[in-house]
Design a protein around this nucleic acid. Structure first.
Length: 826
RNA sequence: GCGAAAGUGGCGGAAUUGGCAGACGCGCUGGACUUAGAAUCCAGUUCUGGAAACAGAGUAGGGGUUCAAGUCCCCUCUUUCGCACCA
């Protein structure tokens, strides 16, 4: 009943493998093209999202190969990480064992779908051969001063028992397990990604990236221009710097606020008789989980320190508060409060009965503190601001800042929302951070020659609440590379985003034992020409990769500025309107579908259902539709293959043929054009497939008049043969098989992508739409060489049109060449 | 709150530069084949009226520009996503 997809798919997978179609090297005359899909987490099963993602890249790969490119498409596994460790704990196994098993299963599944990978380049991030270079890069960063260790409050997931980067906290919850994240003070390793903030903000080489991703990155980095203003404490004279973007309101400052984590806080409250009470407050706020503290409706709370500071612009004494709404991580961790012109300060001042001072007046209505119900944040003119009175407040930002700089009471600065990248994880299954802690010498980097610092295998995972590495003496106990004395190893492992930040270059030279990769090979393949992956990585992975690339460039290892030229963020696969997930119970196992309909059907369904960057709603019926289409193609060719095999393709192109036959030929060449442009220019596979379906319909509504007419048969054959050709990127197995059935020896992947003949897209007759006042009223067909006047004449003469225009005044007639005539009448 | 994207038949979607709205597919309706079902094939399928020809309405809603608007402009609504006390 169905075409024999099982045997065909196996057959062609073997042929591609035997012919080494997807195995590539740098020694090629052809131009290179590097297509990369984000590698999967080694979870042990391919889900529909993977199939969807990889079907897109595989279609492009085949298209590019046929267009004469040396195409690299590698595959590997993101193999380290928490879920693997947790999975192993649950199953009483070891993550190395479960991960290796998972990878094997996934290898098989990949092969079953027939994706064309260069398997020689497979990498797995949990191999010492790979993570050795993570450590190497870490040491290089250390050398360059990009690594530091700092005690800080970090996002702590109590369930995963590890630290999370800010990016890994979603709505105050752990991005992996959904547990509410709390704050914990810990020593952590950080990478100074902020050193590259300015460069990461430069998106000039990302013109082929989705706007959405670029905006998200820009917001994430969050650059703002502002001013640091130097307050002094009345008692000790110690400086407190505050950051503001609203220097224009400095004269309206009535108090200043420190974040509870601010380093000066302890000193400030030393002699306060309420010290205990204040400390209690600080303690409470700090331990409050982020979600509570940052919630929109969280009540602003604060406490007076008992101390005052001097506002440097007017020498006024202002009280110093500590409050929950000031963040240590942004700016200087201290703010000046201008309640009259900042909503947050306004709310706080109202609550604690603090004074307010208007320093910006509205031109039309005069503001009054007694009647104000919210802060005035609009434009206006400065008042109560000494020599700046009367100045427009926007202009005053600069003027006041410059003045403060010259008075040495402030300086203009730039502040970023982006924080440094905390890479420490307190778990076993990751790259050990190559640092040795010596009681004498402090933190000493592991010498390069001693890499890799191997992750010990014999570890009891999940037995203790602490990092299992801590309980492996062979790992922890070591000697200091500097002084030779007893020392202990760092037991933190790296965030797995470190692993995935440079894997795309490793693919260029995956077996290098001396270096992460050879620069020559890297520069041949990199940057990636087309990168494909999920939008969820917009501010995580995609920011880290860009950072890493620039770092590698600064080391002289790559000669480009960005890791990838084109980026496609594919949509997710949904069912019943929601993302497929176990908890929702709406998961469809690709394996089942492949068994039932074959890999080509699944691919066609995925690519046909919507454009690649849109979500794909899974519908069992639509899968049947994709299968039905492939079966129709199969039957058409299967029934006619013997007849067509005997037909000569060549024919006299100038021969006089029927208009029906011309239409068929037109359809063939039009479809080539359409499919080519849809792939090449728009990456829109759904319309490309629709065009092929349309062409199939056109063929099936054509009836051969004379089986002995060699011209007719040749054109008919051409129409049919183009189908496997154009279908091969989307349904590679069936297309190759059909092509062979039609008697061809060379496989499609070894032939060139077809070209359309512009001559055949010209038609002798053109149908014009005739509108009257913009409304469609009739259609006429004229010969293609008709000039505008003739078209007008015929349009007016049309009997349906006559009905509408008799007795009416024609004001003008618009003719759009080859398209329509619009008659404007009254 | 800020930023972004989107809103088109019963459904997924198409309409690429302002020029025939609904390509293609699903579903549905009727028919053919069949003892029957499945599969397949044929016809139809935006809505309203009509047997039909045809007419009218129609791309979230309202307004505007234009000979012509799904497409451009303004306002409103809804949905999704991102950020969110960032001073």
């Amino acid at each position: 009943m169905d075409y024999p997809f099982k045997s065909i798919e196996k057959k062609w997978q073997k042929i591609w493998e035997d012919k080494r179609i997807f195995y590539v090297s740098e020694s090629s005359e052809k131009p290179k093209y590097y297509i990369l899909s984000m590698f999967p987490y080694a979870s042990g099963v391919l889900h529909m999202g993977h199939i969807s993602n990889y079907s897109i890249s595989d279609a492009l790969v085949r298209y590019k190969i046929m267009n004469g490119y040396n195409v690299l498409q590698p595959m590997g596994y993101d193999a380290f990480g928490l879920p693997a460790e947790n999975y192993a704990i649950e199953n009483n196994s070891h993550p190395r064992i479960t991960t290796e098993n998972n990878a094997k299963i996934m290898d098989e599944q990949f092969k079953q779908v027939g994706f064309g990978y260069d398997w020689n380049r497979k990498i797995s991030t949990c191999e010492p051969e790979y993570y050795k270079w993570n450590q190497w890069f870490f040491l290089k960063m250390y050398e360059k001063g990009l690594v530091y260790r700092k005690k800080s409050y970090v996002n702590w997931c109590p369930d995963c028992r590890t630290v999370l980067a800010n990016e890994q906290v979603e709505d105050g919850k752990c991005w992996r397990c959904g547990t509410e994240v709390s704050q914990k003070e810990m020593e952590q390793w950080f990478i100074k990604i902020t050193n590259y903030a300015e460069e990461l903000l430069d998106q000039s080489q990302l013109q082929y990236w989705p706007e959405r991703v670029k905006i998200m990155q820009k917001n994430w980095i969050g650059k703002s221009y502002g001013t640091e203003i130097f307050f002094k404490m009345v008692d000790s004279g110690e400086r407190i710097d505050v950051f503001t973007t609203r220097a224009d309101t400095i004269f309206g400052c009535t108090y200043i606020v420190l974040a509870p984590e601010h380093p000066l806080v302890h000193k400030l409250i030393q002699n306060n008789s309420y010290k205990g009470k204040i400390e209690k407050f600080i303690h409470r706020v700090i331990n409050e989980s982020k979600i509570v503290r940052s919630a929109e409706d969280n009540v602003k709370e604060g406490i007076f320190t008992g101390q005052y500071a001097i506002n440097p612009v007017n020498n006024e004494n202002v009280p110093i508060y500590i409050a929950n709404y000031v963040l240590m991580e942004y700016g200087t961790g201290a703010i000046m409060a201008v309640p009259a012109h900042d909503q947050r300060d306004f709310e706080f001042a109202k609550k604690y009965n603090l004074p307010m001072k208007i320093v910006i007046q509205n031109k039309d209505r005069s503001l009054d503190l007694k009647t104000m119900t919210s802060a005035y944040v609009e434009e206006g003119v400065l008042v109560n601001s000494a020599q700046f009175d009367g100045m427009n407040n926007i202009k005053a930002i600069k003027s006041i800042s410059e003045w403060m700089e010259s008075e040495k009471i402030g300086k203009m600065t730039i502040s970023y929302r982006l924080r440094d990248w905390g890479i420490s994880r307190q778990r076993y299954w990751g790259t050990p951070i190559p640092i040795i802690r010596c009681p004498k010498c402090g933190d000493v980097p592991v010498p390069e020659k001693d890499l890799p610092v191997e992750l010990p295998f014999n570890v009891e995972v999940g037995k203790t609440r602490q990092n299992p590495l801590k309980s492996v003496p062979e790992f922890v106990h070591t000697t200091c590379p500097k002084c030779g004395g007893y020392a202990e190893r760092e037991t933190d492992t790296m965030d797995t985003f470190f692993d995935s930040s440079w894997y795309y270059v490793r693919y260029a030279d995956p077996h290098n034992h001396n270096m992460p990769f050879d620069s020559k090979k890297a520069n041949y393949w990199v940057p990636v020409d087309q990168y494909i992956g999920g939008i969820e990585h917009a501010t995580m992975h995609l920011l880290y990769v860009r950072f890493f690339h620039k770092f590698m460039r600064d080391l002289g290892m790559v000669n480009s500025d960005e890791p990838c030229i084109r980026l496609l963020t594919q949509g997710m696969v949904t069912k019943d309107g929601a993302k497929m997930s176990k908890s929702k119970g709406n998961v469809v196992d690709p394996q089942y579908i492949i068994d039932q309909y074959g890999a080509d059907t699944v691919r066609v369904f995925m690519l046909f259902s919507s454009p690649p960057d849109k979500d794909k709603e899974w519908k069992d019926e639509s899968v049947k539709g994709a299968s039905r289409f492939l079966n129709r193609v199969w039957r058409l060719i299967d029934e006619q293959k013997d007849f067509l095999k005997s037909v000569h393709q060549d024919y006299d192109k100038n021969a006089n043929i029927s208009s029906e036959l011309k239409k068929l030929r037109y359809s063939t060449h039009f479809t080539i054009k359409k499919v080519t442009e849809d792939i090449e220019e728009r990456m829109q596979f759904n319309t490309a497939i629709a065009a092929i379906m349309q062409h199939l319909n056109n063929i099936q509504s054509y009836y051969i008049i004379d089986e002995n007419d060699s011209t007719e048969i040749a054109i008919y054959k051409e129409a049919i043969e183009i189908i496997p050709y154009l279908l091969v990127p989307f349904a590679p197995h069936i297309s190759e098989e059909l092509w062979q059935m039609l008697g061809h020896k060379k496989i499609l992947l070894e032939t060139e992508w077809p070209k359309y003949e512009p001559e055949f897209l010209k038609t002798e007759e053109i149908t014009y739409v005739i509108q009257i006042n913009g409304k469609l009223r009739s259609k006429i067909t004229v010969s293609a060489d008709s000039d505008e006047d003739l078209v007008k004449e015929k349009a007016l003469a049309n009997y349906k049109i006559q009905k509408y225009i008799t007795g009416k005044e024609i004001i003008k007639i618009i003719v759009v060449p080859n398209k329509l005539v619009n008659i404007v009448s009254k």
